[in-house]
């Protein structure tokens, strides 16, 4: 187990450098960051040249990358063009997005798995059909539509929630945005759990559990669910990364100043330091989430042993 973890951590190093390099190059291809800083007006050439030297943009790209990586390892993610340190932006943005992601994941686990179990055990019955159609609708409708619709109905028309989240973004204000963010994944979790449960419900060991005279609840929770959750855990694990980076639309709709919002601003302003910095951290989150999922496998299924 220990050796496996070390090997996996070592494998992360090339992945980490590869992805950051790619992002760095892509951001450089996007266009001249100085032009973006001046906005719509034409830049003063002298000021532009001065800014270029100041940010090191006059050097070749590979040199820029090396300097940047060197700085990252000393904890310096550079400064955004507005003078704020990128680490400061992160310090305010990540806690908000992490809270939002946790809300979304809780929705996925609680609602998604419960619906999956219920429908999986009642395949072909009305409950199953209704839930299946609902998940299909949720998957088919884009997030910004459900997001804007809920914001309009709950926030503006009925006034149940505040249409826009305040800058501190407490958990209670994040419930509806979290649900919107989770919606598509929630539908997938429901379907995945349903299929898995329906398949395992016919397994011999479930029949054995029934023949042992165990109460139905115990048969489902201890014997059936434990085996059926293995594919679902994989999905939810990889979804953690996707939710953190993919909250751009949801964060825009509800005006949440999280990672998605900062990334959006960074791209709009062609601010490479912000974009690369945030994406780098997201890559790390992805890698960590994947490793945790693989380790969870071994916990859920003792037949998998890592050496």
């Amino acid at each position: 187990m220990g050796r496996y973890v070390i090997r996996r951590l070592l494998q992360m190093i090339p992945v980490f450098f590869g992805t950051t390099l790619l992002i760095f190059l892509m951001v450089n291809v996007m266009g001249d960051p100085i032009a973006g800083l001046c906005g719509d007006r034409q830049c003063d050439p002298a000021t532009a040249a001065q800014l270029r030297t100041e940010f090191g943009l006059d050097k070749p790209v590979w040199q820029q990358y090396l300097t940047y990586m060197g700085n990252i390892f000393t904890g310096d993610f550079g400064t955004a063009f507005n003078g704020q340190k990128v680490t400061e932006l992160m310090a305010t943005a990540f806690p908000i997005t992490i809270r939002l992601t946790i809300v979304a994941i809780v929705f996925e686990i609680v609602i998604g798995i419960s619906l999956g179990v219920v429908t999986g055990l009642r395949r072909g019955r009305p409950v199953d059909t209704v839930v299946l159609i609902l998940t299909l609708v949720v998957i088919a409708v884009p997030t910004f539509v459900t997001g804007l619709l809920l914001q309009l109905l709950l926030g503006v028309e009925w006034g149940i929630i505040k249409p826009s989240v305040s800058s501190e973004a407490p958990v209670d204000e994040l419930i509806v945005p979290g649900l919107v963010l989770a919606s598509v994944s929630l539908a997938y979790v429901t379907r995945l759990t349903r299929t898995s449960i329906a398949e395992n419900a016919r397994a011999d060991y479930v029949r054995t559990a029934v023949a042992k005279g165990l109460p139905r609840r115990r048969v489902v929770v201890r014997h059936l669910l434990r085996n059926s959750l293995i594919p679902v855990v994989t999905f939810i694990g990889t979804d953690v990364g996707a939710l953190m980076g993919g909250a751009i639309v949801t964060e825009r709709i509800f005006n949440i100043h999280g990672v998605g919002y900062q990334l959006y601003q960074g791209i709009l302003r062609q601010n490479s330091q912000t974009v690369v910095g945030f994406v780098t951290v997201l890559v790390l989150v992805f890698l960590a989430a994947n490793l945790i999922v693989d380790l969870l496998y071994a916990v859920l299924d003792p037949r998998i042993r890592y050496a």
């Binding site: 011999d204 060991y205 085996n227």
Partner: peptide, 15 residues
């Protein structure tokens, strides 16, 4: 009580 044919599939693999 009942004894089943294929003990590998009749016992729960994760317990």
């Amino acid at each position: 009580a009942m004894i089943f044919q294929d003990a590998l599939s009749s016992l729960n693999p994760v317990l």
